[in-house]
């Protein structure tokens, strides 16, 4: 009985310690003064983290927008208010679905890749090698990846929104025959730039920090074996997804809770 409680306490302390360590790593990476070569490294990471995630983001955005439109139509048409489809699609995308779904896809697509890459660099002693050459891996490897991830997610999320709304319009206007004028005007009346769009962006930014942080930390802290890296990769996806959903609730409560 006591040993179980003790084990629980030990596990808790372990987690807390890991959290503290990851915080130290994050701060060292974030506040590292960029060196001469920082810019090309950052561009390189924007490419592999951001550009390479575009396809999956665009395709998912398109389909989610189309499905939302279709589902919204079948419900709203019963009340004769199918013009509100545009408003519904836009609001749910901009406020909620774009940041969350983008972050989840990002965790699976880019986060896991980051963890595996960094873990493998550790396993093949490339990180040690950097250290011995006198280059801080936190600056050279972690920092550009972190910044690139943090910047990419809001961009991807906005692209997701636009593509999703376009998909919603394709289904709603072109296929189901909602009058285009009311589709847009309803949307414009209900979507507020500073409340909805900006808040959605803030969410995406917070998710970007969380997902990238978890991904680089898991890679940096992984056990340098093939098993250890595969576990770290799984952990990245699981922890990042949970973090995104949890943070989303908190942020939503803070942003829209008083409505």
């Amino acid at each position: 009985m006591f040993t179980k409680i003790q084990a629980l306490g030990a596990a808790g302390l372990d987690k807390l310690e890991a959290f503290g360590r990851s915080g130290i790593i994050l701060s060292q990476a974030v506040f590292a003064i960029p060196g001469r070569q920082a810019w090309p490294l950052f561009i390189q990471q924007l490419y592999s983290v951001g550009v390479l995630s575009l396809i999956i983001i665009i395709v998912s955005g398109l389909f989610i927008g189309m499905v939302l439109s279709l589902q919204g139509y079948t419900i709203l048409v019963d009340y004769g208010s199918e013009q509100a489809v545009g408003q519904m699609v836009a609001l749910s995308l901009v406020r909620e679905l774009s940041p969350v779904v983008t972050a989840l896809l990002f965790a699976g697509r880019a986060g896991s890749a980051l963890t595996a890459e960094i873990g493998l660099m550790k396993a093949t002693e490339q990180l040690s090698s950097l250290e011995m050459i006198g280059v801080d891996p936190l600056r050279r490897i972690i920092a550009p990846r972190f910044w690139a991830g943090m910047l990419s997610l809001p961009l991807l999320s906005m692209i997701f929104s636009v593509v999703g709304i376009w998909g919603g319009m394709l289904v709603g206007v072109d296929w189901l025959g909602i009058y285009e004028g009311s589709f847009w005007s309803n949307m414009q009346n209900s979507v507020d730039f500073s409340e909805d769009v900006v808040n959605g962006l803030i969410k995406a930014l917070v998710f970007g920090v969380a997902v990238t942080w978890i991904a680089v930390y898991q890679g940096y802290d992984s056990v340098p074996t093939s098993e250890g890296i595969s576990q770290a990769t799984t952990r990245t996806v699981v922890y990042a997804s949970l973090a995104v959903l949890g943070l989303d609730f908190i942020l939503t409560a803070l942003m829209f809770g008083d409505l």
């Binding site: 093949t124 002693e125 490339q126 040690s128 090698s129 950097l130 250290e131 011995m132 006198g134 801080d136």
Partner: peptide, 23 residues
């Protein structure tokens, strides 16, 4: 300190057992 250590390492070269080339 971490910073001094990186300074000192500029005087060292190390060949790792696994090679450890940047892939």
């Amino acid at each position: 300190s971490r910073k001094e250590l990186f300074k000192v390492r500029e005087k060292m070269g190390m060949l790792f057992q696994s090679g450890a080339l940047f892939t």
